[in-house]
Design a protein around this nucleic acid. Structure first.
Lengths: 115, 115
DNA sequence: ACATCGCGCAACCATCTAGTTGCATTTTCA
DNA sequence: TGAAAATGCAACTAGATGGTTGCGCGATGT
């Protein structure tokens, strides 16, 4: 948890923003949660229980795939999608970085007030 | 080991998705990082150094504000914005939850393979 | 062999979004 | 008092986004 990852993180919103954007849709967020359960699902399976069309789900999966959060493998006539954790880890690091920034700012403020 | 707790977290993408969406834009992500530095900024100050219009920045700040990530206070003729950490904390929790789900899935898979 | 399942492609549509410009309003300060 | 600064409000545009429907095609199972 305490890896010293310096300023390489700071200016990478160019790579992180698409991941956040991919998570910014309720449908996609639900898909991510389901796939993070470990089991791969086909498009039709993921469509089951959602009142959306198969095409809609398919499009959402494409978005997640281009964001790198999901990988697809063709298995016969069906296309299996499985979760891919790396982008989310990157995004978590980023949020931790911002939180740290904020916490340090508060500490400085507190130190200043107490003088 | 299956805690029946997670329903408090699991089904909250309805509240988390807007925060992710707010972070899903490069401009807004940059604004968040800047404001997380601790110091409050006015709209004009935040516009400085960005090739966007003041109105564009203003709109982005509105988006961040309705997502709860930023709070504004009127100070004379200028409007000061400061970072608000709670939504980001919630989102971090959520990502941790998904990661845990994934890690446990991997553990189960490993245990299964090793039998 | 053939019906069916799962999928991709394409067109189409409505709405949202990011951005602009123009103008009005309030606050500051010389 | 009056100019300039900081903001708000409104209208508008181009392009992205989320969703649908229709059709065609390769894989599957009986």
């Amino acid at each position: 948890m305490s890896q010293k990852r310096p300023s390489t993180i700071a200016l990478k919103w160019r790579t992180h923003a698409p991941v956040f954007a991919a998570l910014g849709d309720e449908t996609r967020l639900a898909l991510v949660v389901k796939l993070a359960g470990g089991r791969p699902y086909s498009i039709s399976q993921l469509t089951q229980g959602s009142r959306l069309t198969r095409q809609a789900i398919s499009k959402h999966l494409r978005v997640l795939e281009t964001a790198g959060m999901v990988q697809s493998v063709r298995a016969g006539r069906e296309n299996l999608f499985r979760f891919s954790p790396r982008p989310m880890e990157g995004v978590k690091e980023y949020l931790d970085f911002v939180s740290q920034q904020w916490d340090r700012a508060l500490s400085r403020l507190k130190a200043f007030v107490e003088t």
